[in-house]
Nucleic acid binder design. Structure first.
Lengths: 320, 320
DNA sequence: AAAGAGTCTGCAAACGGTTGCGTTAGGGTG
DNA sequence: CACCCTAACGCAACCGTTTGCAGACTCTTT
């Protein structure tokens, strides 16, 4: 019932190979024949069967995109930009969600490996070793993870974290906590390192936890007890959860404790108090990742981040 | 280089058809042979090539999911549930985003039609006619759109809207605006109808607009001038944008105007004032849609909605 | 002991394209 | 006019898997 290349060939009086070529190598077929074939194809509603095509070419025309959590507002802008970039080059984008689960992540990569030409792996949770092994089965580019020899695009969160620390220190804060996210996260490590290595700061590390609102509110008590006056949270969601949790304990932000998030996500942008946060170029990263993938360039690019000062930070209480 | 069914066959001393059967029809092959083949396949790292399989079977093992806007927080829970349901039945889910653009929607459906076994079409913007025609090329199930003869799963937004109206009327409001979303939206129509048909209410319709925060703030002035004391907004994002816009005009919510959203999205849940909103069973819808699709049952199911009263609604000013 | 039934496996033809190679026709060159 | 070259197209093998058919074998049954 579906119309194949053979139907088009018959209807336009040429061989199937000619029809094939009018689509995949137009310059090899006479202009007149080509337009005739195209007209017939159009009339019959012919669409090339990508499965069949990929069988011979080995290419699928698909790109996989794997994220840790679709519901994390950090990802949608990245996904949308990636999809736009993919479609611009006649690729389709398949999105999957690992639910922050490394095992699921590996399973998805394996499952994708035969149906995509490459994978954009965002914020992976698998260890480097595992990723290096998987990279042999299917080309991929990593977002926010740096591994020697693999194509990566990372955001300079360390610089963002340092800017955030400078902001807090500038306001007079000295005792500062960093609330980290999931244990496999590269960005989490970068942030933690940048914080704990800040000179003249008295820092404490809290975590790891799920990088969600619940994760943030779950550590509110520990943050309150730790005696810190400033906090860097793994992302906006954690920051918001933390602020909510602190509010429940009668601790106000930024009155008693200043809180800084990461991502500058829409959820954070609309929250009250307006979140001071480190903006991440998620859309750029998504676009660049698929561009790198289709050019199968091996490169390593790092994108700038910047601090957005809003209302969740203030000088510590009692400072003049 | 990639290991095929033939490699497995050779290495385990059986014919390719036997290998094929151990995967696609295990009961047809001797238990002993089967385990031997499986062991070899495991050792060689064999993974069936889905493209080749789909060429003969006609099935791809993929399901497409098309949404209007991935960045709308209404969708991620739906997508995640759909993906979980798909994987549970060994399907893969391909997500795409139309950017609220009907032409793009049609293009995506066509592009998907050969690489998926069916499509879950969420909140379509295309007119019924177009959808009926497209439904002949590829099976799909509609979410939040009702068309005779097509499989649909809709949320009872009309009932939710009536509950919201009852809530406002109960608080004493009589002049009430409905801020609608995009013109092709079925839910928008349902809400509008439910509002304008409420007895004893003096209603005004404002819209259509893009269903985003910007869309909501853009109509703030018109809402303020309209003299209403209560508003039903197309979704939480629009409600929030509206509240922000009103605040910019010195109009407070719920002090001066009560606002109700739809979706009960995470963004709305974290916003201040806590949004009174109509909760939508998005996850249930996603799960049911793919279940209906794989069973290719033709059915029409409607899911309940319910009103969540929080802080964005109050009695009108001056009422006792 | 022969026939029938049932299991398991091999054989080979598809599925819908792509592509290297061969053929044909026409044009340019000496 | 013989030669080579090129453009356009046909031919057929191949990509990796499924599946209807048939053969081989074992086990019952009569």
């Amino acid at each position: 019932m579906p119309v194949t290349i053979r139907d088009v060939a018959k209807a336009s009086g040429v061989h199937v190979s000619t029809v094939s070529r009018t689509f995949s190598a137009p310059h090899l077929v006479n202009a007149e024949t080509r337009s005739r074939v195209l007209a017939v194809a159009e009339r019959l509603g012919y669409r090339p069967n990508r499965a069949a095509r990929s069988l011979t070419t080995g290419r699928t025309g698909n790109i996989g995109l794997i994220v840790a959590d679709l519901a994390d507002p950090f990802f949608p802008p990245l996904i949308k930009a990636a999809q736009a970039a993919a479609r611009r080059q006649d690729y389709h984008l398949f999105v999957a969600d690992t639910d922050e689960n490394p095992a699921e992540e590996e399973e998805l990569i394996l499952a994708f490996s035969k149906q995509v030409d490459g994978i954009v792996l965002c914020s992976p949770r698998l260890p480097n070793k595992a990723l290096e092994k998987l990279a042999k089965r299917v080309p991929f580019v990593l977002v926010n993870r740096r591994i020697r020899g693999l194509t990566t695009v990372v955001m300079d969160v360390a610089q963002g974290a340092r800017a955030a620390m400078a902001h807090l220190m500038g306001l007079g804060h000295r005792r500062i906590a960093v609330v980290t996210g999931p244990s496999g996260s590269w960005t989490g490590g970068e942030i933690r390192k940048a914080v704990t290595e800040t000179p003249d700061a008295d820092t404490v590390v809290i975590g790891p936890h799920r990088p969600t609102e619940e994760g943030g509110s779950a550590v509110a008590a520990r943050v309150a007890e730790s005696g810190v006056t400033g906090v860097l949270a793994y992302n906006d969601l954690v920051a918001i959860g933390l602020i909510e949790g602190l509010a429940g304990l009668g601790v106000s932000v930024p009155g008693d404790i200043s809180v800084i998030g990461f991502d500058d996500s829409v959820t954070g942008r609309l929250y009250r108090p307006r979140l001071t946060t480190v903006a991440m170029p998620a859309g750029d990263a998504g676009r660049m990742a698929v561009d790198l993938l289709v050019q199968s360039m091996s490169a390593s690019t790092v994108l700038e981040t910047h601090l957005v000062v809003r209302e969740s930070t203030a000088p510590p209480k009692g400072s003049s």
